[in-house]
Design a protein around this nucleic acid. Structure first.
Length: 297
DNA sequence: AAGATTACCTGAAGGC
DNA sequence: TGCCTTCAGGTAATCT
């Protein structure tokens, strides 16, 4: 029995880990049946029931924090023309979990989407808080939906990133969390990246110097790459009971460490609210105002 | 009109 | 079988 799940707060590295784990077992599978629970976090649930059965999963990929299942829609009862394509977008919100296993197994509470597959297994989506989302889109809808999202931090060019910073008066923390500008970062990895780059989260994006922007760019890529390598902060996947939990949480330097000592300078880690989110940082390593006084307010 | 704030949702944790 | 408040956070809606 294959079994994948998230514990909490999936960001880019976690979703990437899930996508890589599901790629092989889901690729080529046909969806035989769909059962829904609560649907208030799904777009057009009737469409899921109508078009998913009979479709084949062609590819599993990640886009920002979204997990994408590319489908070849082949069901008899559907509104689309033959051999059309569609895409099932899954966002895991804060508490979304995906499992793949025995359809006869016990159904956990808050399981809201169940898809029977042609290999006898069942893919389930469980989401306690329903902060996630589920939507099935055609090619044109998919394109416009994904176009709302900003740069991929692992694929974009550094100059596009620094240009993005230069034209924003938002606080850097808020900018990094804004999926419309950079896609994939959440609260954990923004805090870790800002600590790594020694930049205060409340700094105005455009106030960052060229070298600071460069440090931040490198930090984001390094943090994300490392986290993917360690299978994220909170992903666990079990393959025939031989699972490996994500280990990046052991690497957290500031997130959730308020009151503890900075691993770099020994100062006490603080936590403040920025952009409506908790932000953990080291007040010594990440000063708000530099000696040059070039930080705009 | 970009930036800031609030609402949504549930369970864990803490105060009393 | 204790009750109540607070907190967590991704995204959409609302406000300024």
């Amino acid at each position: 029995v294959w079994y994948f799940f998230f514990t909490k707060m999936p960001e880019l590295p976690e979703v990437e880990t899930i996508a890589r784990g599901l790629r092989a077992p889901l690729g080529g599978r046909r969806i035989m049946g769909v059962r829904l629970g609560k649907t208030d976090f799904m777009e057009e649930p009737a469409r899921l029931l109508r078009e998913l059965p009979g479709s084949q999963i062609a590819e599993v990929r990640r886009y920002g924090k979204y997990l994408l299942l590319d489908l070849e829609v082949m069901g008899q009862c559907r509104s689309l023309p033959p051999d059309d394509r569609a895409c099932l977008l899954l966002h895991l919100g804060m508490t979304g979990q995906l499992t793949l296993g025995d359809p006869a197994g016990p159904v956990a509470r808050h399981t809201h989407l169940r898809m029977a597959l042609d290999d006898g297994r069942e893919l389930r989506l469980n989401d306690v808080r329903r902060f996630g989302s589920v939507r099935l889109l055609g090619p044109a809808e998919l394109e416009s939906w994904l176009a709302r999202l900003g740069l991929d931090p692992l694929e974009a060019r550094e100059e596009d990133f620094s240009e993005l910073l230069g034209r924003s008066r938002a606080r850097i923390k808020a900018l990094l969390l804004d999926q419309g500008r950079i896609r994939g970062l959440g609260n954990i990895y923004t805090d870790e990246s800002l600590w790594s780059a020694r930049i205060h989260p409340a700094r105005r994006a455009a106030s960052l110097s060229r070298s600071e922007a460069h440090r931040l760019w490198k930090a984001i890529r390094s943090v994300l790459t490392q986290a993917i390598r360690l299978r994220g902060s909170s992903v666990a996947n079990y393959v025939d009971a031989q699972g490996q939990p994500g280990e990046y949480q052991r690497r957290h330097r500031v997130y959730g460490r308020q009151g503890k000592r900075c691993a770099r300078c020994g100062s006490t880690i603080l936590r403040i609210a920025i952009a409506g989110r908790s932000s953990c940082f080291c007040p010594r390593c990440q000063p708000l105002v530099g000696r040059a006084g070039r930080n705009a307010r």
